[in-house]
Design a protein around this nucleic acid. Structure first.
Lengths: 217, 217
DNA sequence: CCCTTTCTGTTGCATATCCCACACAATATG
DNA sequence: CATATTGTGTGGGATATGCAACAGAAAGGG
């Protein structure tokens, strides 16, 4: 259960009064839980939809050989769930894992999509907030596809850097994760990526200091 | 403007009466248009959101060198728009192009997200439908990321085939596009993909006749 | 504080992938 | 019907990428 101060920062319950928030939790059988780092948050076995209210989590895929790949980075407002994305068509398993201490709300998706008789005003705002979160999610996934659809490591890096630059509104920006994770994010070998990064630095296309990067133009 | 029969098949106006549908069009300043094959539907210059009501379209990216890549396949219920996905951070341009004759509804996104005083009942259902469409879109994008994040052509192909198999509910399925486009879809060289496909056939992992494929297991 | 773990940076080598080029089939177009 | 366009299938050669391995830096944990 959130405090009144925390509620104001909540992406899912944005513009909903504390009174309504409490009623929604019970009416929708919503559950709120906190997680510590590295804890398993969700294993795609239930139909529930989860929303990250605080902290940071990752959606990872583990294939038959045990190789893990980060599919999504879930910050505040991040949404996940079997019915929303990554149905997990293949034999490999999916998990949402806590990175930094998290608060997560779980709601049954059918509750959101079914038109209920009572509580309709609250319901409608909740759906609207949910729509906003899904739009953000689609944005994030699109950016990922944009990067991954490039045909070389070099193009992938430049595309991703341009995205970060655009988001920060500056030619200089900070990577949201380590270089090792970056290699994973753009789905390539780490050493090959380092080699390409070196080339970009030598050419002067990119300057970097730790996780801080600056691109030319 | 849709006929009453067509309205029933509409994903965006699902469960909305013909009377309400007409009022929504005027109240939201929604515009409906038809397109012929190869016509340009949207160029990401306006803030409008488009929904494919009938037909088929593609969202393509054209980079500085003029190379086109299909980023999304938009069937009935497909949603696109600057604010929803593919903001187009980089220097290359984005377009939605008609594949098969299309009907498309355009609505200003701010109209959907702003809580209006009047027409609230209609509005609420429309938002709910929109949420469903966005969830479907996120699903599709996730599947794409799942494929693209594989590290070899072989794994990409198998992952995609398993998805199609799952969707069709059978080990046999039909590709939704040509092999050339498939190479584009999984972001690899066509000849390299053909070579890998040959290997898969020789091993017996895959059987194919034209665009019809069958996978083992 | 030491010790463990993760991250960074680099290299040699094998090969998967790309690029170019060609021939033929299938399909559209007038 | 002739002709253009697109799709399929294949190959040789160049190279970008992956793999394995190592060493030092940085960060975390008791």
């Amino acid at each position: 259960m959130l405090s009144e101060q925390e509620l104001e920062k909540s992406p899912l319950f944005h513009d909903i009064s504390y009174q309504d928030y409490r009623e929604i939790l019970s009416c929708f059988q919503a559950v709120q839980r906190s997680f510590r780092a590295d804890e398993l948050i969700y294993d795609f076995s239930s139909d529930a939809v989860g929303v990250v209210e605080r902290g940071q989590a990752s959606l990872i895929r583990i294939d038959e050989e045990g190789v893990a790949t980060v599919l999504e980075d879930l910050g505040v407002g991040g949404v996940f769930g079997k019915t929303l994305a990554f149905a997990g068509s293949t034999g490999d398993s999916l998990e949402v894992v806590c990175r930094r201490p998290c608060d997560v709300v779980f709601i049954d998706y059918t509750h959101i999509l079914s038109r209920c008789g009572h509580a309709c005003q609250r319901h409608s705002i909740l759906v609207q907030n949910m729509l906003q979160l899904m739009a953000d999610k689609a944005q994030a996934l699109s950016r990922r596809v944009d990067v991954l659809s490039r045909r070389s490591i070099r193009e992938k890096l430049l595309c991703y850097f341009r995205q970060l630059s655009q988001q920060s509104g500056s030619r200089t920006f900070t990577l949201p994760f380590s270089l090792s994770t970056l290699a994973d994010y753009i789905a390539t070998d780490r050493s090959a990526m380092m080699r390409e990064l070196k080339r970009l630095r030598e050419e002067g296309s990119v300057r970097s200091d730790g996780r801080q990067f600056t691109i030319r133009q």
